[in-house]
Simulated assay, not measured.
Amino acid sequence: MRTVRTLVTAALAGAALLGPVSPTALADSPSASASPGGDTAGPTEAGTTFRTAARFLPGQQATAEGSSGDYLYWVFPADTGQRPTVNASVTLPDAALRRGPATWRIDVYDGLRRRQPCMYGVQSRTAAKETATVELACVLRPVRASADAWANDPLPGSYYVRLTVSALPDEDLGQPFTARIGVTTLDRSGAHATDGSLAAPLVPGATTADLAEVETEAGRTTAVEAAAPEDGWSSGWWSDRWLWTGAGAVLAALAGIGGYALTRGSGRPSRVPPAV
């Protein structure tokens, strides 16, 4: 009975250490909300190139007005362990002014201007002539702390969103439209954690010297610091994998104690009643 109590105690202690499993750890829904995330106001204009992209933060809504045929650019930061979801809503001109359907598209690029594929979401959609709005979404892969040089894995740094119409009647070129862009992030650090980390986030125009200046000269704004999320860039060494590793070590120790108690109990000589 003492052995059974030891094993039960070990199991209960392990369950308490691991805690309840969050729903996001059990399942990853492939669906993405089509409405831009966040309620905080962001920039009201967009850039027309990568260099002039309008910066906003996850949780904000960026808006802009443009003409059909323009390329609109925004940029936002994504840190280690985050899985960004980009949502876009395009309000089209009145149907009476349009000649036919139009296909709208969003693309996302990292700090090296590598196009990042979407895991889920409707990245391109064709709007009929009578359609008033177009909803687009792109769920990116989780951002990793480091990756091989040949890989196209998303890394911490700046991410660019480009919105444009890819197909429409020539007569509809130049017609005005309104766009809203939002980004939400989901923490996926433990399942995609890596042992290494970048010397500096992938921020265009920034170098490793910029990161050193941020660490040594408090209050000085550099390209890395200016492009950081609200709570700054993470170092990349911490993830919830450390919690699971520590819990596994504790469970292994408890299992060893239980095995020792079981072996010790079975190795004792049985008591022989004295002869009468």
Results as ranks from 00 to 15, higher is better:
142 P>H: 04
220 R>N: 09
55 R>T: 15
174 G>C: 02
274 P>F: 06
47 G>R: 01
21 V>E: 02
7 L>K: 12
48 T>S: 09
252 A>K: 05
193 A>I: 05
127 A>N: 03
160 Y>W: 02
222 T>E: 04
49 T>S: 10
163 L>Y: 01
76 F>I: 02
69 G>E: 02
92 L>Y: 08
19 G>K: 00
266 S>P: 12
172 D>M: 01
179 A>W: 01
268 R>I: 11
160 Y>I: 02
220 R>P: 08
12 L>T: 10
27 A>V: 14
214 V>E: 07
203 V>Q: 05
157 G>T: 03
1 M>Y: 15
120 Y>V: 10
137 A>V: 14
180 R>E: 12
129 K>A: 11
39 D>M: 12
168 L>F: 11
113 R>N: 06
41 A>T: 15
65 E>M: 13
5 R>Y: 15
206 A>Q: 04
125 R>C: 10
156 P>W: 00
35 S>E: 15
269 P>T: 06
144 R>A: 09
84 P>H: 06
44 T>C: 02
274 P>R: 00
140 L>N: 06
227 A>G: 02
44 T>V: 08
128 A>D: 13
112 L>F: 14
39 D>C: 09
201 P>Q: 02
180 R>Q: 12
179 A>C: 03
146 S>E: 12
62 A>Y: 04
227 A>Y: 05
16 A>E: 08
203 V>C: 03
20 P>W: 09
253 A>T: 11
243 L>F: 14
8 V>C: 14
70 D>V: 03
52 T>M: 05
216 T>G: 07
261 A>L: 09
204 P>F: 05
132 A>R: 13
105 R>P: 00
104 W>F: 02
192 H>T: 12
229 P>M: 01
240 D>K: 13
57 L>E: 14
159 Y>C: 00
65 E>L: 11
216 T>N: 07
56 F>W: 07
43 P>C: 04
230 E>I: 13
56 F>T: 08
90 V>C: 02
256 G>N: 07
86 V>N: 03
274 P>Q: 02
163 L>I: 03
202 L>R: 08
216 T>R: 06
172 D>Q: 01
74 W>A: 03
74 W>L: 00
90 V>L: 00
43 P>Y: 06
196 G>W: 11
104 W>G: 04
229 P>H: 03
141 R>Y: 15
154 P>E: 05
272 V>E: 08
53 A>W: 03
263 T>P: 08
216 T>P: 02
275 A>R: 12
227 A>P: 04
26 L>K: 07
179 A>D: 01
37 G>F: 14
174 G>Q: 02
212 A>R: 08
236 G>Y: 01
169 P>K: 00
88 A>L: 10
113 R>I: 07
82 Q>M: 10
28 D>Q: 11
35 S>Q: 15
